[in-house]
């Protein structure tokens, strides 16, 4: 009987807490808890880092890991540069409207933020950063890696902290295009299955190694922001659309710092 009463009381309190959280009434409490917990979390992460590296690959030596990290960063930066160059080339050749978009945001402003935690739930791909509304961060802002590729979008903002929903989250959808063929589609995350680009027209030329970047459609992301590279393409001849697996350019599982694009404001289009 006592257990039943306890279950009912705690269950009801939990539901009340969920309702209050949805109203944002507990945000100050969350901000306070993160303020206290974030230094401890950072310490724990630092302490766990060697073990995590060991867990990652028991045969890797520290210097090889460092070299690998640098090389990955260089690849990401160079791929981002290639994406920008390809886009610039395309703009110069044909599309004046792309040039207009590019010219409309000539001075992007970034805020460097440190990653302080990752969501441990297995069902969500989110991470916490150490900047919040007091620093000018707001929901919908685009988050990039240090290498300049797309990481995700700010989904929840507290006074001093914010949560970023990664592009690999199962609820994430980004309008994208393959730079080489200009084929458009939607890059979506999924549960532990990486990124995939859906809704690619059957007649579009898409091959492994092609570069995928944001298309800017919908107004939620700036144009020509590197997402990754096509790893494989699936789809039968009778299918209306094809699907491509996309390898993210940023190393999303080991991010330490990110850039919040504060100068870009997402446009929420309403139906006519």
């Amino acid at each position: 009987m006592r257990t039943l009463v306890w279950l009912l009381v705690v269950g009801l309190l939990a539901l009340l807490g969920i309702a209050l959280s949805q109203q944002g009434a507990l945000d100050p409490l969350k901000n306070g808890a993160l303020t206290v917990a974030s230094p401890l979390e950072r310490g724990l992460r630092t302490a766990a880092s060697p073990a995590a590296d060991f867990f990652d690959n028991v045969t890797d030596r520290q210097d090889l890991e460092e070299e690998n990290r640098l090389l990955r960063q260089q690849i990401e930066e160079l791929t981002a540069e290639i994406a920008r160059l390809k886009e610039s080339q395309f703009m110069a050749a044909d599309l004046a409207e792309l040039a207009e978009v590019e010219e409309s945001r000539p001075n992007d402003q970034f805020l460097v933020a440190r990653v302080i935690a990752r969501d441990p739930s297995n069902l969500k791909e989110r991470l916490a950063i150490d900047h919040g509304s007091k620093d000018g961060v707001s929901e919908g802002m685009v988050v990039m890696s240090e290498g300049g590729s797309l990481v995700g979008v700010i989904s929840k903002v507290l006074d001093d902290f914010a949560w970023v929903t990664l592009i690999t989250d199962s609820n994430s959808n980004v309008n994208a295009m393959v730079l080489e063929s200009r084929a458009q589609g939607v890059v979506s995350g999924s549960l532990h299955d990486g990124l995939s680009m859906d809704l690619i027209p059957q007649d579009a030329e898409v091959e492994p190694g092609n570069t995928v970047a944001t298309s800017g459609l919908g107004g939620n992301f700036p144009q020509a922001l590197l997402i990754g590279q096509v790893a494989s393409v699936r789809g039968e001849a009778q299918d209306v659309f094809r699907k491509a697996e996309v390898e993210p350019a940023a190393s999303l599982s080991r991010l330490e710092n990110v850039l919040v694009l504060t100068s870009f404001t997402a446009t929420h289009l309403e139906s006519p």
């Binding site: 705690v10 309190l13 807490g17 209050l20 993160l34 929840k156």
Partner: peptide, 15 residues
Amino acid sequence: LITTDPVGVSALALL
């Protein structure tokens, strides 16, 4: 309090 979950979700799930 220190994750993105609404407060109460984990307590509910641990019941």
